[in-house]
Design a protein around this nucleic acid. Sequence first.
DNA 1: CGTTGCGTTGATCTCTATCAAAAAAGGTGG
DNA 2: CCACCTTTTTTGATAGAGATCAACGCAACG
Lengths: 220, 220
Amino acid sequence: MELGPMLRDVALFSQLSERQLSGLVETAVVRRHPRGTQVFSAGEDADCFLLVAQGALKVYLLSGDGREHILHIAEAGDLVAEGAVFAQGTYPASAMAIEDSVVVHFYRDRLVALLRAEPELALALLAGLSQRLRQFVATIEDLSLRDVTARLARYLLENSKGGFCRLTGTKTQLAAQLGTVLEPLSRSFRRLKEDGLICEHKGGIALLDEKGLRALVDGF
Amino acid sequence: MELGPMLRDVALFSQLSERQLSGLVETAVVRRHPRGTQVFSAGEDADCFLLVAQGALKVYLLSGDGREHILHIAEAGDLVAEGAVFAQGTYPASAMAIEDSVVVHFYRDRLVALLRAEPELALALLAGLSQRLRQFVATIEDLSLRDVTARLARYLLENSKGGFCRLTGTKTQLAAQLGTVLEPLSRSFRRLKEDGLICEHKGGIALLDEKGLRALVDGF
DNA sequence: CGTTGCGTTGATCTCTATCAAAAAAGGTGG
DNA sequence: CCACCTTTTTTGATAGAGATCAACGCAACG
């Protein structure tokens, strides 16, 4: 697998010079992670950030009694743990391959060195972290201030294109992303269907009444 | 109020040259915010980040039916909205002065210009955002995977020095930080006291059994 | 002293997790 | 194409955590 050209396609790296890119590639490690493999675990020293080249990872939290909350799913082209790497410390979450995946590991020190020379890269990273921060704030808002049905409505609106939302993983997985479990989520789906707000097709959800969904999200 | 010297005391700005500092100060706006005043509101264009010079702000989310979740309290020397400013867009949360406060407003454009010239500043900001990201992940973990008592235990451990945790605001405020309301929080306090884990003094909480508290946080 | 805001306690109600079972949906191999 | 198996999803019944409502105690303060 050619690493250099692939990195070109990642928005974050698109403006780097050949030399800078190869500087990154030099210490990068490419690893295959079969489905179900642990990529890193919460509590480990956070010395790398990752680029998903193929497949998909889930980044998740685990409770003492085994419940799981999925922070986000990273697919091909997405970065993982870009945030954790800057304040030295440990990964606050774990990551596991949910498909057979290829992952590029970049070492912190190399990145930091590159950042000193390349302010544009730093700005791009700041923008990326800023985005992630927004996403987390939205999640906190969901968990603290909205019920499961409203969270589902928000998810559908957020992840739809042209009135249709493709569901990638299983509903169990979606439940873990919304901070709940399968059964309550299933009931929320039913409520939205009964109220005529959505319609379920195989492979996704059609949003019939986006205004109605938005009203739900905002609390009537 | 002399702005220059004050900024020197902020970790983020401590390594800037005089010229860079005055470049920031030039476009900065100092504003007084009496207690109870709105500093910015969720949804407004995020063109500034703030430094609290005196007093304290609460940064919070509001639900449709008026419930409030406090993301964090920013006191003198703390930055606010440093994250929101890099991905152009709107503030995801609101901020209000909870004491008579003095706040310095910095404009995004000026900061971005400075970042291009000063990679160390960018690195410091990245570290700061990284820290904030960690905090938010911890909050998500709390809300999704821990009950109120465990959240309280974590808060006490996190904010204690030498086995003692000062409570700054009211308990109503603390409840809003932990994603609950006063009554359940009060019961959680009682449980911790009954189990001999803490002891309440006026002005703060003594942690009698940190190991026991940690066990609670980790889910027994 | 009364007022006002804050905290505690008790009683109820709502939402969600859990448990259990059945129904769909997908694959596999014949 | 079908029988069979696994996985996922739906539905029902129950239980538990926490929000809400109401009443009361308590302190600060005019």
